[in-house]
């Protein structure tokens, strides 16, 4: 399952954002400052959510590559929309790779702002930690409460 999440994440980041993340062993120094966390609830026989956490710096990089805009043309709202879309595509690619039955379906994505230093998400077992250059990226799969 986590391998499919990883493959889905790489597929989305490489194809649509031109980013080539590396897996992380140690995470602490890569997660700092303000960030965005977006996730897609998956409804069906089991309820869970698929999402990602990125720094604002990385969100800006993603949005620049995705939309072909200059960084100063990107208000926070646009960054949030791009990170939500990334979560949406990762969730979709993950379900396809899992060959999930059609009873599972994607709900509209959510996004929140957060301070990456304050987070407890690193304790989540079902997640992957990656880095794009010096910026950390977390992709997670967790029970939807």
């Amino acid at each position: 399952m986590i391998e499919n999440l990883k493959a889905a994440t790489f597929e989305v980041l490489e194809t649509m954002f031109f980013l080539f993340p590396e897996s992380l062993e140690e995470s602490a120094q890569f997660f700092h400052g303000p960030g965005l966390r977006a996730w897609v609830p998956v409804a069906g026989p089991k309820k869970f959510r698929v999402g990602l956490t990125v720094s604002l710096t990385l969100a800006r990089e993603m949005a620049t590559n995705f939309l072909g805009l200059e960084k100063d043309e990107l208000p926070l709202e646009k960054l949030q929309d791009v990170v939500k879309e990334a979560a949406n595509m990762i969730a979709g690619a993950f379900l396809s790779r899992e060959q999930a039955p059609q009873e599972f379906h994607l709900m509209p994505p959510h996004v929140v702002q957060l301070n990456l230093e304050d987070q407890t998400w690193r304790e989540n077992a079902q997640h992957l930690l990656m880095a794009v250059e010096d910026e950390g990226l977390e992709v997670f799969l967790e029970k939807n409460t």
Binding site: E11, L95, S96
Partner: peptide, 27 residues
């Protein structure tokens, strides 16, 4: 143009006359 890649969802739509689909992520 969709994140959906499961054939059991896409195939009935193609039968209804959808001309094709492009999966997100796309180039």
């Amino acid at each position: 143009i969709t994140t959906e890649g499961r054939q059991e969802i896409l195939a009935p739509l193609l039968e209804k006359g959808v001309q094709g689909y492009i999966r997100k992520p796309f180039r």
